[in-house]
């Protein structure tokens, strides 16, 4: 061993400064400081943004359970008198609970399941089979994502008012001339498009499934074909069990978006007493915004307290769902990998 190596192998003497503390090199100190500054910056940023996100929810919580409408100037967060008055009015008068919630649950649950099934099938078709006009058809899927539903909602309304079930009702009318199928105010106005892959953001879900199936290795299917499995049983037996993570993502998003939907559902449930819960809520808030109902400030404040209570009622089921499934919500997006 030569000298320099021996020198290096000797335990290094820790340099001390005049206070007897360990002496670090300047660049090391700078790096450490920068690291800590960064961590502090990040922490503060997240705390600040957490405030921005949680603030409206916390105020809603505070307002919903406060008994005195005309809040005194000293009351900021914790109400002087707790009470359920706001909640009660919001529950029965504003939201028509629990019927509207049952309707919403039925609506979004079935629609979400239908959307998962259809968009999986269609996405698989787009991902794995070559046929004439595939690229064109897929660009139409993208188009259906971009075109907002507001553009074609009015004709939809008229179509649903007298729905012909793809010509079937003409056939029935031969025997029963007065037969008429009105899908308005029924769940079918949401289920039918979901079933046919053009429901709420249906194009996006087809896109997600297509990307997912494209990323899966072809060997599995080829093995299944060689073993004599037909294309449909291959899909059901081989692909579906492997696509559960994508299915869960689509299901959760579809569920939440159907629950929150106002634009389409508001149009499709025009006159029913029981309307989906988010429609009931937005209708109430729109009434206030038009100024037709509340002309005085105190009435407006009163209304705002009840509206906050109503918002809480509407978002609680979704928050509970998220609380239980947050792991799946967050991981699912990573696993599916929505990429370009």
């Amino acid at each position: 061993m030569d000298k320099s190596v021996k020198e290096r192998m000797k335990p290094q003497k820790i340099k001390k400064n005049k206070f007897g503390l360990q002496k670090f090199s300047k660049s090391y100190v700078f790096k450490e400081l920068a690291k800590w500054a960064y961590i502090i910056f990040r922490t503060f940023l997240f705390i600040g943004l957490a405030y921005v996100i949680l603030y409206p929810l916390l105020t809603a919580l505070s307002k919903a359970f406060s008994e005195d409408y005309m809040a005194s100037a000293t009351v900021e967060w914790i109400p002087k008198n707790f009470g359920m008055t706001n909640m009660k009015i919001a529950w029965s008068t504003y939201l028509n609970m629990p019927d509207s919630m049952f309707l919403s649950i039925r609506l979004s649950l079935v629609a979400a399941i239908l959307q998962v099934v259809t968009s999986a099938i269609v996405g698989y078709g787009f991902a794995r089979y070559k046929f004439k006009g595939r690229e064109l058809l897929f660009s139409l899927v993208i188009l259906s994502i971009i075109v907002p539903p507001q553009t074609y909602l009015i004709p939809m309304y008229i179509i649903y008012r007298r729905f012909h079930w793809f010509g079937l009702s003409y056939l029935i009318q031969l025997f029963a001339p007065n037969f008429e199928s009105n899908l308005l105010n029924t769940e079918w106005s949401m289920w039918l498009p979901a079933m046919l892959g053009v429901g709420l953001r249906g194009g996006l879900f087809i896109y997600i499934f297509r990307q997912f199936f494209r990323g899966m290795p072809k060997d599995l299917e080829e093995a299944a074909w060689i073993d004599g499995c037909g294309p449909f049983s291959t899909f059901v037996r081989i692909m579906v069990p492997n696509a559960l993570s994508a299915a869960l993502t689509v299901f959760l998003f579809s569920l939440v978006w159907h629950w929150n939907d106002y634009t389409v559902a508001g149009m499709m449930f025009p006159t029913a007493d029981v309307r989906p819960i988010s429609v009931m809520l937005i209708t109430q808030s729109a009434k206030a915004a038009n100024g037709s109902l509340y002309t005085s400030l105190s009435a407006d404040i009163n209304n705002s307290f009840i509206l906050n209570a109503a918002v809480l009622i509407v978002i609680t089921p979704v928050l509970v769902l998220f609380g239980f499934l947050q792991k799946y919500f967050i991981e699912s997006v990573d696993r599916v990998g929505i990429k370009g």
Binding site: I121, V122, G125, Y129, L140, P193, L196, G197
Partner: peptide, 10 residues
């Protein structure tokens, strides 16, 4: 056949 439901819906 796989994309037929979507074609009808679309």
């Amino acid at each position: 056949l796989f994309i037929l439901p979507w074609i009808i819906g679309f």
